[in-house]
Structure formats: structure tokens, C-alpha cells
Computed example of a mutant assay.
Amino acid sequence: MEMSINEWKSYDQFLSASSTQRYLKGCYQRSSSNLASDELSYRNCYSFIYYLTHGKRYFDLCKSSPLELQPVLLYYGMVQLIKCCLLTVDPYYPESTALLAHGVTTRKRKKQNYLFLQDEIKVQRNGLFPHFSKQLFHLETVEGDKFQMQELLCHVPDIDDLFRQINGFSELLQVSITSCGLMSIPDKILDPLHMTDTRFIQFLKQQFATETEVNYTGSMFVIKIGEKGIENPLIKKSVDGNYFIPTKREGFKPLHEVMVHYLLLYNLSMICRYETEWWGDLFHTYSSNDFPFISRFLSNSRIKVPKLLMEYLDKKRVGD
């Protein structure tokens, strides 16, 4: 999956200690007037640069690495970029060794007739996943929560066409959003959601916490969500800039797509390293639907993860 979009377009500006220190200082001053922004930005600027350059090297290696090895490279590259983002909001990261854990866990031994799409991952109390979910996206995770791999893949809009081609159904519906934050949703979403137009209007207002009136034209729901509304985890954005929302109630879980990629890449990296027999068979037997979804996801993740996280860093810039 090669895209013309340069997902690293903001990278070079951070290859200067003075520029990075100034950037971090602005982040800290905006978050709290009580922070020693000069001292903290100076202390963290080199960690920030090393996390970023280390992460980029992992992603660069993926371009020339076999697909079988990419989950490990992508996962650890993502971890480094997440640490960069954390330093913009948490100048003392990591305050404890508990934050160095992954924050999620999977089954240690895979069952006979194992299928990746049916596998689950469980959230732990401490570690990187719950910490960055809260710090970066203000989303609380619950210890013990489980996510199925197919359920997570449904949150990745760039894979939605594969669900339609292989399974005959789509989990997402494309919507249009104007530059002023006006979202239009086709009313065919009512059938899969089993909602009336009145109930769906109530649902939209709950999701976007807005008093703005929702207009129903008879074929389209139109709601003004504003610029901030586009960041709502309900809205999924593809690499090519199209917007989607879920067509199933299970898809309304508050998961940012960065969280989704982290969970999937963690599990795939563990399988790649410790379930080598199953992993090897996957690339030679084509006996299930697992391979096309895994292959498409890895190709997308190599582009999407740095794009999402570099966009996050751009939005933290003060005064731009």
C-alpha cells in the first residue's frame, strides 16, 4: 500500500534541539502555568528527538522487510512515537516502572484451530496502553476489558472494503464533512442500527455533546459538529481523507484509531515472535480469512500510524 501522502512531513523540524525545546516549552506553558517549562523542555528535548528518530527507523525498515517480520518493527516503532507524544502532555514520563509495561495481554498459548480474527486482547490496569489512552485522547480504559481482533479491524476505515469483499457486509458508512464542520449522514444507517430517525437524532446529540439542531431532510441527517467534532472517536478517517462512522452499535465504543492500531500490532507482534509455527503456516496455506486482513492491516499501519501520531504532534504546536 503505497500512498503519495508524506506521513513524515513534520519530522525534520524536530531534528534540532533548540526547535524541539521551544516546541515542548510551548506545550508545557499551555498545559499549566505551574510547570517549570524551561527546565522540563530542556531536560526532555533530547529524549523526544531520540524517541522520534528511533521510531522512524523502525518504520523505514518495514519498507524493505518481509511481511512476516513487520509486526515487531511496526509495534516497537509505534511505541517510540507514542512516547514522543506523551512527552508533550506528561513532562515527567515515565514516572514509574509500571508505565513501561505494555498495558495489555493476550492468551499465552493459542488453542487448536486458532483463528486470529476471533482472538482477544485484554486491557491491564497499568502500562503504556491505559496511560497514553488517557493522556493523549482523554479516554479511560477499564482493567479486564476484552477486544476481539475482528471487532478492532472494523474500526480501521481503510480495511472496510475488504470486509465487504470477503464477508459481504460493511461495518462503516461513508459520511461527508465540510470545512466548517457540517456532517451529512445518509439515512440508510437507520436499518443496521435498528433506530428510528428520532432515536438517531438523540444519539447524535449524545455522541457530540451538542445542543446544535440536527436536520433530517428525508434522506440525510445534517449536524454541525465543528472543527473539534471531527476528533470524536466515533468518526473514522481513511488515509485518503474520507470520513466514516460505524453502522453497528458495537462500533460505538470510544476507541481512537491509534488505540486500535496499538492493540492489533501488539497481538500480531506477540504471535510473530512466539507462535512461529502458526505464523509460518499463515503465509503458505491461505486456509482462512486471517491472511488478507493481516496483510492489508500491516500495509495500512505502516502509513497510518506515523501519519496519525505526527498529526497529533502538529496539533500540539503553540501559536501555529
Rank of each mutant, 00 (worst) to 15 (best):
M3A: 14
I5P: 09
N6L: 04
N6K: 06
E7L: 13
Y11Q: 09
Y11K: 07
F14G: 05
A17I: 05
S19N: 10
Q21K: 09
S33F: 05
L35A: 08
K56N: 11
L61S: 13
S64F: 08
L69W: 03
L73S: 01
L74W: 02
M78T: 02
Q80K: 13
L86G: 01
L87N: 13
Y93D: 03
S96L: 05
K110Y: 15
K111T: 15
Q112A: 15
Q118W: 12
E120W: 11
N126L: 07
G127I: 01
L128S: 03
Q135L: 04
H138E: 15
L153C: 05
I159Y: 05
F163L: 03
R164V: 15
L172W: 05
S179Q: 11
C180I: 15
G181A: 00
S184C: 11
I185N: 02
P186Q: 06
K188C: 15
I189D: 00
L204D: 00
K205I: 02
A209Q: 12
A209I: 07
N215W: 13
Y216Q: 00
V222C: 08
V222F: 06
I223T: 02
P233D: 01
P233H: 09
K237M: 14
K237V: 14
V239R: 00
D240S: 11
G241L: 00
F252Q: 06
L255C: 00
E257W: 07
E257G: 05
V258I: 09
V260G: 01
L263G: 01
L264T: 04
Y266V: 10
N267Q: 15
E275F: 09
E275N: 05
T276N: 04
W278H: 06
W278F: 12
L282P: 02
H284Y: 15
T285A: 06
S287H: 09
R296A: 12
L298F: 10
S301M: 08
V305I: 12
M310N: 12
L313K: 07
L313Y: 06
D314A: 11
K315F: 12
